[in-house]
Write a protein that binds this DNA or RNA. Structure first.
Length: 228
DNA sequence: AAACCAAGCAACCGCGCGCAG
DNA sequence: TCTGCGCGCGGTTGCTTGGTT
């Protein structure tokens, strides 16, 4: 499309493939000087021979401060499972509720763990069992988190509002204690939501009906109302 | 020790949306 | 209103790595 000219008009000159440490340094320096955004001008200003698109991806998925590395926690896995059940493959939306995790990471996680390899009913059953197992594991973790949570819950705690901006803020501007507190609060609400959904056994139907665009958004918005 | 295979992950690609002129 | 541009998103690809034979 014409709109891609800014990204790709010099395709033949763009470097591709794995990033080198030197390229990372250039990109970090560029963002430090100019801030995030204006990706199409990175090449001109920094000397990087990378497309703006490639720069943005590298920054968002790898270089951005506050990113968590390593394996997902059971809490995070539970949140992914539940939000995917609600929203389907809206990876960036799901990522907003997992501070420090990227949409790419979540997408890869899902594909690795739950990717449909065949359509056999046997595999469907296996998949359901796997999700059920992870759900149970997650709920156990939630209980432990709640039991060990020493900080009091405050309705007016503005820092807990978990939209995209405050997540970013909480990643960079709050203490680890606050971040853990926020996560445990969110985990508690997810657990409550689970209780509602799974009470009559409808969760399984809920989980596998992923094709609708976003039919369950009101449910989660109600459950997560203190964060929206 | 070598070959093969599968899983995990980083990066690329195409599409579509929002905005400014 | 239309068009071009910048950008974000989801899907896909291909490389790397670790495990198995």
């Amino acid at each position: 499309m014409a709109g891609n000219m800014g990204w790709r008009m010099q395709d033949q000159e763009w470097r591709k493939g794995p990033w080198t440490p030197a390229e990372d340094d250039l990109l970090i320096e560029y963002v430090r000087m100019h801030g995030e955004g204006r990706w199409s001008s990175v090449a001109g200003c920094s000397g990087l021979k990378r497309s703006g698109k490639s720069c943005r991806l590298r920054w968002v998925n790898y270089l951005r401060p506050g990113l968590k590395k390593g394996q997902l926690t059971p809490q995070e896995e539970g949140i992914i499972i539940e939000l995917h059940a609600l929203w389907g493959n809206k990876w960036s939306t799901i990522a907003r509720y997992l501070p420090g995790r990227t949409d790419n990471e979540i997408k890869n996680y899902w594909r690795t763990n739950f990717k449909e390899k065949t359509t056999s009913s046997q595999n469907q059953e296996k998949k359901k069992l796997k999700v059920a197992f992870r759900r149970d594991q997650y709920q156990q973790e939630v209980k432990e988190t709640i039991n060990s949570c020493a900080l009091p819950y405050k309705e007016d705690n503005i820092g807990c509002k978990m939209d995209g901006e405050t997540i970013a803020a909480s990643s960079s501007g709050t203490t680890n204690e606050q971040q853990q507190h926020n996560q445990s609060l969110m985990a508690r609400d997810v657990a409550s939501w689970w209780d509602i959904v799974s009470e009559d056994g409808s969760w399984s139907e809920f989980l596998w009906n992923l094709d609708d665009d976003n039919p369950n958004q009101p449910v989660i918005e109600q459950s997560f109302s203190s964060y929206f």
